[in-house]
């Protein structure tokens, strides 16, 4: 079983590396944003580099969870690949476990790359406690945003429109959050909305600020919703 999971992880990583656009937006773009924003504001404000580092990690976790899990699994069902996967001599769940673990590995790799960029560009040394917070944030964040992505893609929306909706959700979550700057200091209403949405909860974990009950809600409700929708949805090919 371990051998099957390892092979599944390997092939999922290989597949993701072949989609050049995905590699750019998952690896190069977060580093680009971090380096540029850090250069503009990092010199003037102490602590901004560490604030931005956790913000960019949170942004990457959200985008990976929303775009790399739900739509991919939906694609398996709608193009009939599930039928073939079920015929293989191992449990289909192992394939999905491989997909999720491959995303975790890729996110941890990006976290490490960002930490190296923080040191090389700004001389900022990430502590072991911060790395632990980042890893916990990766696991929790990927869980929350994966189920959010799954809820949208399995909600019965026309194929193609679901990607537009996920994009909208992602940008609303991102720009109301404290990923790049404390939004609440500029606009209290947007700050309040951001505090309700899940990214600020994940950012609290990444920044070592603890969790509140809202994270529990964002963990449970999408999971239950997806379980309900999965039974209801019918796939047209």
């Amino acid at each position: 079983m371990i051998k099957i999971i390892v092979k599944s992880i390997y092939y999922q990583l290989l597949i993701s590396l072949r989609i050049k656009q995905a590699v750019f937006f998952t690896v190069a773009f977060p580093i680009f944003l971090f380096v540029i924003f850090g250069s503009i504001w990092g010199a003037q404000h102490d602590g901004y580099v560490s604030f931005l580092l956790s913000g960019i990690i949170g942004m990457t976790i959200a985008s990976d969870g929303l775009f790399a899990i739900g739509p991919v699994i939906k694609e398996y069902y709608s193009n009939g690949l599930i039928k073939y996967l079920r015929k293989l001599p191992f449990n289909i769940l192992l394939h999905f476990i491989g997909l999720i673990i491959s995303r975790i590995i890729s996110l941890i790799f990006i976290v490490l790359l960002l930490c190296v960029a923080a040191y090389l560009m700004f001389g900022y040394i990430v502590t072991s406690l911060e790395i632990l917070n980042f890893i916990i944030g990766v696991f929790v964040g990927l869980f929350v945003f994966s189920f959010l992505g799954l809820v949208v893609t399995f909600s019965g929306i026309k194929q193609g429109a679901d990607k537009g909706i996920i994009n909208l959700i992602y940008f609303v979550i991102l720009f109301t959050s404290n990923a790049f700057y404390p939004v609440g200091e500029f606009n209290k209403l947007i700050g309040y909305i951001g505090n309700i949405l899940p990214l600020n909860q994940i950012l609290s974990i990444l920044r070592g600020d603890g969790v509140n009950y809202l994270l529990g809600i964002w963990t449970l409700i999408p999971m239950l919703l997806f379980a309900f929708l999965f039974k209801k949805v019918k796939f047209k090919r």
Binding site: A28, V35, I36, S39, I40
Partner: peptide, 13 residues
């Protein structure tokens, strides 16, 4: 892309 990013950083510095 790297040259472009470096140009932006140099301009900021």
């Amino acid at each position: 892309f790297i040259i472009w990013t470096s140009t932006i950083i140099l301009l900021i510095k």
